[in-house]
Design a protein around this nucleic acid. Structure first.
Lengths: 248, 248
DNA sequence: TATTGTGAAGTCATTCACAGCA
DNA sequence: TGCTGTGAATGACTTCACAATA
């Protein structure tokens, strides 16, 4: 791996005391907050756009505007990469993109296997966001014999019965589950058994996995419900405010 | 300086002091944390499944297991709905579902307009999660003349030029953006102008909207990048653990 | 007795404000 | 002069632990 410690910065706060003495180093070294990790990909996208436009440097304020966050958040987030900016100037776009990319582990392409070739799975297989920046959809699986064998984009739908072989063949690191809810857990189990430790699920169910397996869920009905919650409080509030005149 | 992120709830805290004493209390009181709001829909799904199975009561511990969170989280979350459980017994499944549903504002059906009838938009139009529980996809729009007029499920793709009329006709409360990135901002602007204040975007861009409009983003490449981050730290660690004798 | 509901403590994240540096 | 990087303050969320109670 590209794990060099060429960085001279001697004072990396390691919360060693919080854990035991014999905890594997990987848990201690980087210490990047989850919230920061979730924003780094957004910065990376913005930096890519800036780079395409020929912009050489960017300030935390500009980057913040383009990413839709506050500038203090940007500076705090980037501080976890070590000193990457130049005071009075800003950040070098190319260098920063490289740093962020490296921090996220996007140093090599990862193969992605999608299980469930329904509408959503097929859509994701062709989705541009999947093809870009370090991910390649290398297989699309389904149970339905009527679907198995049909082409979707560059791929041909394969039988989910061969899941283990497909994972082995493609060296997939990430599994995406777009099956109906009831099938999700068993598909998940098989992905895990096949060696996949990173799973993105669109199924509206809770998946249980062994320790060490990382599951992220995207649940459309949850997103809609959250919007509904805010919506339901906004309507009465607006009426009240309108009657009382402008808020400020 | 719109400073909203994908998780943004534009106005969680109402500045009560600014309004004096005669603002209706119910508008100010609830103060449900964002993190809780994001979990309530999950509880609601679990409660629905329990109800279908004929289960009458459920403890915070059981609910926690089914929802994939800790039991203290469940109790804390539900405490925001007022006293809903019975000590020594648990929660009444039906009554709790009703309470949660009401808290989320899922009391009436909301019309959803999807803009972008590509793979993803078409998939979402037919997605079960959209049809269930208080949401109905009432229109699907696109720019492409070759797509406009074609049927997708029960719907016929309409011309995005008629966006304003479609929103008015359907009384849509929620807009879903599944266009390519470059088109997203202008579609967003038009949705907002048409009176939509709740937007779910799948476009990989930052959307800027006026205050009071709620935007949630689902970004597949962000999700994958987060998985990649954890994946890239797991690999070296597993080797280390394997050498040291991993328990599981 | 079993389980809720909640103070209190702890952990994590955001924001402020400015010293330090190019 | 302008902007980064970061202590310190604030705020949000989680977890603990147990008193209250059906």
């Amino acid at each position: 791996m590209t794990e060099r410690r060429s960085e001279g910065s001697a004072e990396k706060r390691v919360p060693a005391a919080a854990f035991g003495a014999d905890v594997p180093e990987r848990l201690l070294l980087p210490g990047v907050p989850d919230a920061t990790v979730a924003r780094l990909p957004v910065y990376l996208r913005v930096l890519g756009a800036l780079s395409d436009r020929g912009t050489r440097t960017v300030s935390s304020d500009e980057l913040a505007g383009l990413a839709g966050v506050g500038s203090a958040v940007v500076r705090r987030d980037l501080s976890h990469l070590g000193p990457t900016g130049t005071r009075g100037v800003g950040y070098d776009v190319e260098a920063l993109a490289e740093r962020v990319s490296h921090m996220l582990g996007l140093t090599h392409e990862r193969a992605v296997v999608i299980v469930g070739a329904g509408n959503l799975g097929s859509a994701l297989a062709g989705y541009a966001g999947f093809g870009s920046r370090g991910f390649r959809v290398s297989a699309l699986l389904d149970t339905d014999p009527a679907v198995v064998g049909t082409p979707v984009g560059d791929l041909v739908v394969e039988d989910v019965a061969a899941l283990e072989q497909v994972v082995a063949r493609t060296g997939a690191a990430i599994g995406v589950i777009t099956t109906p809810g009831p099938a999700a857990q068993s598909v998940c189990d098989r992905l895990v058994d096949a060696g996949i430790a990173s799973i993105l699920s669109f199924a509206p169910t809770t998946l249980s996995v062994p320790d060490g397996v990382d599951v992220r869920r995207v649940d459309l009905s949850v997103e809609l419900a959250i919007l509904a919650f805010h919506d339901s409080r906004r309507l009465p509030a607006e009426l009240g405010l309108a009657a009382a005149g402008d808020a400020s």
